[in-house]
Design a protein around this nucleic acid. Sequence first.
DNA 1: TGTACATCAGTGAACGCGCGTTCACTGATGTAC
DNA 2: TGTACATCAGTGAACGCGCGTTCACTGATGTAC
Lengths: 242, 242
Amino acid sequence: MPESVVPSVVQSAPRSARERVRLELTSEIKQVALAQLASSGGAALSLRAIAREMGMASSALFRYFRNRDALLTALIIDSYSSLAEAAETAEARVHEESIEDRWMAICHGVRNWALAHPHQYALIFGSPIPGYAAPNGTVAPASRVPLLLGDLLGDLMSEKSYDYGALPEPSAAIQRAIAPVRATMATGVPSELIVRGLMAWTYLFGAVSFEVFGHRHNVIADPEAFFDYEVRRLAGMVGLSH
Amino acid sequence: MPESVVPSVVQSAPRSARERVRLELTSEIKQVALAQLASSGGAALSLRAIAREMGMASSALFRYFRNRDALLTALIIDSYSSLAEAAETAEARVHEESIEDRWMAICHGVRNWALAHPHQYALIFGSPIPGYAAPNGTVAPASRVPLLLGDLLGDLMSEKSYDYGALPEPSAAIQRAIAPVRATMATGVPSELIVRGLMAWTYLFGAVSFEVFGHRHNVIADPEAFFDYEVRRLAGMVGLSH
DNA sequence: TGTACATCAGTGAACGCGCGTTCACTGATGTAC
DNA sequence: TGTACATCAGTGAACGCGCGTTCACTGATGTAC
């Protein structure tokens, strides 16, 4: 197992051989679990099946994860992180280009990751798993893509040509409605910009989910071309271009 | 069991008492199944649990549904139909008003239904159920909400004040990409209008799914107010207003 | 209207399979002196 | 460097539970004459 598959939670370097083996096995369990997600979905994830596949007693897994939910949580955190990394990498490649180019890169990054990992995508953006409650640890990794969009908006705002004083601000009721997001951002971001960011994120999620969940079958013949077109138009609509 | 819960598939009136009882029991099974969806989700839907709840032998259910998938299909069709009915009813109430009012009515109709029936919503718009393939019978009921939006666009097009000759048509590649939707519509609808309809539908789905699946927790304080605001703005963006 | 037969609903046992989690245990690896 | 002890990984049996589906059957309802 190469080092790159080590759990994404930052950890001090393993001191003993035993500890290194433990980290490797932990991530092997997660990999086998991901492979099983593909055939059965998150709700049906089975510890016994994972143990069988790995050739060990099912009881051994409990040395690595307290219970099934703990494994699910680890998979969810990994999935959010993997998605975020894909989006961030895609954006980094065009980071010096226009805001619109960066938006397009993020969109395609998210879509490509989702199509390559449909079951991980379903795990984090599909139906909630009954009986499972996401712990706080999932919040930070889940926020990375929205934060990336937030950065875009910030850069848009600081562009000299951008007259953000001229933005009409939404009503007080709407400002109150978006107060929680605002609280997670730097002060001074105009509400109008936050609304645009939320709408862009909502649209991106809607388009990708439609495709990944099969609702564009027999509707769109060339999903990639249409996706490129629709998110570019959306950029125009919410002022992410020129 | 009142008559109104009879299966939505049109059926000739029951001739015998036996037949009437059969229809009633069929729909009672579905209702119990829906109640169980709420606590366990579609993937874990259990025939034995349903039978237990109904006080009958689990084998008796096989007289009503050939197998588990047949029951799932019935639930999916019912859910699509129930959602469509909610949207159509909401639209009918303001059918004489402006296009924008009708759009808003559809949006709120869809959202209200989804919030009232989150597990049915998840069943049709959430993660696909592993190992289950939707049969053709689900296509028609699934199309009713999109068709409703299509009607809106049609009415928009036929408004005297609407200069649809002036619409810029998307590229040939995009026209090819949306060919499958076009095939389901009356001829002569401009591609640009179809694109706008698709984008409106994608956004509506994205916004409702975000909320129903919990991704607006700690993000939006007043989901209803924000939803009203965002879909109204979207109407402006895609030309569904004034 | 009554009888004979066919249809159907529902039963209960059985098949063969799955699951998460606990627990006392063995044997290997690591640590302190 | 060697020894004594503590820590930890992994085992395998067990608990108590679940599931979909089949099948031979009983008894009630419906149909044809």
